[in-house]
């Protein structure tokens, strides 16, 4: 199956299909999405009920559909770990504030994890298959797998698949307290040099139009997807990677580029460092989380990067790569909190 179109709102200037040239620098442990003028994509009457994450998700989905020139997809599948946190926070806060009485309906209605997929369906008047996956660090991969299965089983000829997660003031405070983020002064551009515990918070909304048939405008071919949970040790991670490639009749020599989910956390990055000395040895590996931050569906940002790299045949200028070798085959390896591990294989059409 093929990635025909994309739409991406992230802490970088990714919206609008502009070339990704300069990295946006952030100071502190939180990256925030750069949002477009939503009025071009969403009816102002609808915008007023949408919180930030809903706007981001809907706008990224609309950009993707516009690029694909598809008005109504055969299916809409979304993945999110946190859901619409701002609305959830608003709803729960009002429950406390008004002693569980006088609750306003909008925040409650919009707080569910399937809100964004549902909003897209409502806006498009699309009554086709619509599903949302909430599986922590596997949320995006689960949505992607569902999209793949729909296409493979001929239940759809095109599927809109997306991942959406936001960081709010409340969730940032709570996760910060749990020790997941770096403390003190930190720049996203230097995050891999810190060698300290913790990472930087991120968020994003990335959508892909997957199609069963090839077309001249496709970005890339989606060859494979695999997830594995809590591997016992690094040897098992290596075994999973090798076995995944073998299943797709690909050797490591065929891979032109590997996107790895390194996030600057000295503890969890050890897995990537170990792999760099074994299965990834002598391969060109690229980190991406200094651009989008860490969040449970960050692998969607990597898939977007992989798709645009394959389409143009080279890494975006933002990576300042010295290699002139045309990129035909890309492997994405990501793990979230060393628990949820995923492998995605893409190639040129």
């Amino acid at each position: 199956m093929y990635i025909r179109a994309t739409g991406n709102i992230s802490p970088q200037k990714t919206f609008g299909h502009q070339p990704l040239v300069d990295a946006v620098a952030y100071t502190g442990n939180r990256l925030a999405c750069i949002e477009p003028d939503y009025k071009e994509f969403i009816d102002p009457k609808l915008i007023r009920r949408m919180s930030r994450i809903i706007r981001m998700g809907v706008a990224a989905a609309m950009e993707c559909l516009q690029e694909a020139d598809i008005k109504v997809p055969d299916a809409i599948v979304t993945g999110t770990a946190y859901g619409c946190l701002e609305d959830t926070n608003s709803f729960l806060s009002k429950m406390v504030e008004f002693n569980e009485e006088l609750l306003t309906p909008t925040a409650f209605i919009q707080s569910t994890h399937n809100t964004i997929g549902a909003q897209i369906g409502l806006m498009l008047q699309c009554n086709n298959y619509n599903n949302a996956f909430v599986h922590r660090g596997f949320s995006f991969e689960s949505a992607l797998l569902d999209g793949i299965l729909l296409l493979k089983e001929n239940d759809a000829s095109n599927v809109l698949v997306g991942a959406i997660d936001e960081i709010t003031n409340t969730s940032h405070t709570i996760i910060n307290r749990l020790g997941l983020y770096k403390q003190g002064e930190v720049s996203n551009l230097d995050v891999y040099k810190t060698k300290t515990k913790g990472t930087i918070a991120g968020e994003g909304a990335a959508f892909f139009l997957l199609a069963a048939e090839p077309s001249a405008t496709n970005y890339a071919k989606l060859d494979g997807l695999h997830t594995f949970y809590k591997p016992d040790n690094i040897a098992e991670v290596e075994k999973q990677i090798v076995s995944f490639l073998n299943r797709h009749s690909v050797s490591m020599n065929d891979i032109d580029l590997i996107f790895t989910g390194k996030n600057g956390d000295a503890v969890s990055d050890k897995i990537y460092d170990d792999l760099a000395e074994t299965v990834f040895e002598n391969k060109e590996t690229v980190n991406y989380k200094h651009l989008c931050g860490e969040y449970p569906t960050a692998a969607s940002f990597a898939m977007w990067l992989a798709a645009i790299s394959i389409k143009t045949g080279q890494l975006p200028a933002i990576f300042d790569s010295a290699s002139n070798k045309k990129i035909n085959k890309v492997l994405i390896y990501n793990h979230y909190l060393s628990i949820h591990h995923s492998l995605t294989l893409l190639s040129a059409c």
Partner: peptide, 17 residues
């Protein structure tokens, strides 16, 4: 103004609050 049924609920809450 183009309000709908969800807005009606919000207005009921407004009167109470």
């Amino acid at each position: 103004l183009g309000l709908d049924s969800i807005d009606a609920l919000e207005l009921i809450v407004l009167l109470q609050q």
